[in-house]
């Protein structure tokens, strides 16, 4: 039984936007780190999964309340981000970018390893939703309140970051990346700015992880390549944003989510298995070859 095409389209776009919100959160973190330190952070999604594991542990094993557990998860994610900055990024600050990339990939793998270690008895975990309610849209898509909360959080975070980058601290982050020595001379502590960048990025990752966790069951590596594999889509969204633009990252995340879901249309489905991955790969190649500077980039702010 196949639905008419326009209904499928509506369903796919709804699912795409909702899933895209998670991608956009991850993409924001990736863009922030790239703007702050010029690094492709492959550990971004794992900050989220680790935060999710911590929140799950606090809620289900320790029996703390939902708000406390949420904050605890965020705290663990931020702590992981700061530890990464101190133990890996800072000692390697003079190395090549590929070395740093291998370093962040190592952090991601270490996080996955520790997640396995921590919860190796539990095979399938599921985090309860903040609000279990859901409703049907007029075109028949099921939308959970949890997904709407994620979308709302994304909007708040995006606006907040846009404002933040106009504040002195936000400008300091950019200055420190572009001219570290000159920034030190005008009184910006590059070290503190770097810590700040990674802390915020890890918090964004934590938000993505803890908010997306209840969508499905989860296991180690959930947000990187597990049930909600947001690492690659997040990077694609960041590329669409030219690795610099915050609003671009949000738009890119939503677009990537939609494109991925469009491949589930029945006219494509069945032709090849895993059409989503194929479409994403071709899309990324196309974007990188045709417009490597990104799509959602306005005037590049240099200040």
């Amino acid at each position: 039984m196949n639905l008419p095409l326009y209904e499928q389209l509506a369903l796919a776009l709804t699912a795409g936007v909702l899933r895209g919100a998670v991608y956009a959160l991850v993409a924001l973190g990736i863009v922030l780190v790239f703007r702050g330190s010029g690094i492709f952070n492959f550990a971004q999604a794992e900050f989220g999964t680790t935060g999710l594991f911590a929140a799950y542990w606090a809620l289900e094993i320790k029996g703390w309340g939902y708000p406390t557990s949420f904050l605890f998860g965020m705290g663990v994610a931020i702590a992981l981000g700061l530890l990464t900055e101190r133990l890996v990024i800072h000692p390697l600050r003079d190395s090549s970018r590929v070395t740093l990339l291998v370093g962040t990939a190592g952090v991601a793998l270490a996080a996955i390893g520790f997640q396995f270690w921590w919860f190796n008895e539990t095979l399938v975990m599921s985090m309860p939703k903040i609000n279990e309610a859901f409703f049907m849209t007029p075109w028949g898509a099921v939308v959970t309140v949890q997904e709407l909360i994620t979308l709302g959080v994304l909007a708040v975070v995006a606006v907040g970051l846009a404002l933040f980058f106009r504040s002195p601290s936000g400008l300091a982050i950019q200055a420190a990346q572009q001219e570290p020595v000159a920034s030190e001379l005008v009184g910006i502590s590059v070290r503190r700015v770097s810590m700040l960048t990674w802390g915020i990025a890890a918090a964004l990752g934590g938000l993505a992880g803890i908010l997306a966790g209840p969508y499905l069951t989860f296991s180690a590596g959930f947000l990187s390549f597990g049930a909600v594999g947001a690492l690659l889509p997040g990077f694609m969204a960041a590329v669409l944003a030219g690795m610099r633009s915050m609003p671009g990252a949000v738009a890119g995340g939503l677009l990537v989510g939609c494109i991925e879901q469009l491949s589930s249309l029945s006219i494509l489905d069945g032709a090849v298995p895993g059409a989503g991955a194929l479409v994403l790969f071709v899309f990324l190649l196309g974007v990188l070859l045709v417009r490597p500077q990104g799509i959602f980039v306005g005037k590049v702010a240099t200040a």
């Binding site: 492709f40 970018r97 590929v98 990339l101 390549f225 594999g229 690492l231 690659l232 990077f235 694609m236 590329v239 090849v272 298995p273 895993g274 059409a275 989503g276 991955a277 194929l278 994403l280 790969f281 990324l284 190649l285 990188l288 070859l289 490597p292």
Partner: peptide, 26 residues
């Protein structure tokens, strides 16, 4: 050859993902 350094890492990541989910699922 048209891309550099880090962007190429992304392409290989996407290629791996595509191979795993599409090619290896045939």
């Amino acid at each position: 050859l048209r891309l550099t350094g880090l962007y190429f890492a992304l392409v290989t990541l996407a290629f791996g993902n595509f191979a795993q989910q599409t090619v290896f699922a045939i």
